[in-house]
Design a protein around this nucleic acid. Structure first.
Lengths: 137, 137
DNA sequence: GTAACTGCAAACGCTTTGCACTCCC
DNA sequence: GGGAGTGCAAAGCGTTTGCAGTTAC
């Protein structure tokens, strides 16, 4: 999503465009490891010394409301934020907790089969797959 | 799992059999809505007036360690405990938060296809499907 | 008898809330 | 200029921890 689209999305929903919001969105959008609020805060406070953790939380809630990311709670004490809103599998290492997204066409295909079998209209979904990553093997 | 199996499982892992542990396991095993620690505590304190919330938490951690249940964090502020360790889909109502398990042979079949495509050894998995339940429609 | 378990209460840590100041628009 | 947003600090709340008393074995 480029700047212009982002500006429009904020404004048409009645939200102002601020430096903090742009910085937080741009940071999370480039990350594939689903950082936590504090990780985002730590990463940004060098370039934006006055940014606060509270603002990070508020902004992440806003971005979720706008459909730009989803909150994911794993078996750890903090929430992770995933900017990938398409169907995918969260590959979670059982040992180190590292996470990355696995996307494949056949996952969508097979998921559609399951959906039509259940016979409901899906509003969203989440798949986690626990395994042992290469570093931990 | 009957009493004898449960006793054996506890003891062979070096844990004592206590009234509280039996009560908590038996309660959670009969429930299909994945109750929280506090819900379990509230439900049991009539029959076991001295039971404490701390013991419920400690026991649930123990049962998880023994592979009798799994912790599930959804987008709410408490942890739910799911005694169904087989492959299934958590059907979550987006409005009221009600949850039930959907189990079907074809879910397993399709999941096996995905696993072999990814080419890793799964240590566990979790599927959530968000929809609107009949009560909320 | 003794080591593990329970119950209680305090501590913990992430997240939310409240409010005065600031800055988009 | 005005209202939404930020930054700060305090509050909130589910969960964990510590410890003295109790119980399983």
């Amino acid at each position: 999503m480029d700047d212009q689209e982002l500006f429009t999305l904020f404004r048409k929903n009645g939200y102002k465009v601020t430096t903090q919001r742009l910085a937080i969105y741009k940071f999370i959008a480039t990350r594939e490891d689903h950082p936590s609020a504090d990780q985002i805060y730590q990463a940004l406070k060098n370039d934006y010394p006055t940014i606060s953790l509270g603002t990070v939380y508020k902004t992440l809630d806003l971005l979720e409301k706008l459909g730009l990311l989803q909150k994911l709670k794993f078996n750890e004490d903090r929430v992770r934020y995933d900017p990938d809103m398409e169907l995918h599998i969260n590959m979670v290492c059982s040992k180190c907790g590292q996470i990355y997204d696995y996307k494949a066409e056949n996952v969508k295909k097979l998921w559609n089969i399951i959906i039509s079998d259940i016979g409901i209209k899906p509003l969203g979904q989440r798949f986690d797959l626990y395994y042992e990553c290469d570093n931990c093997k």
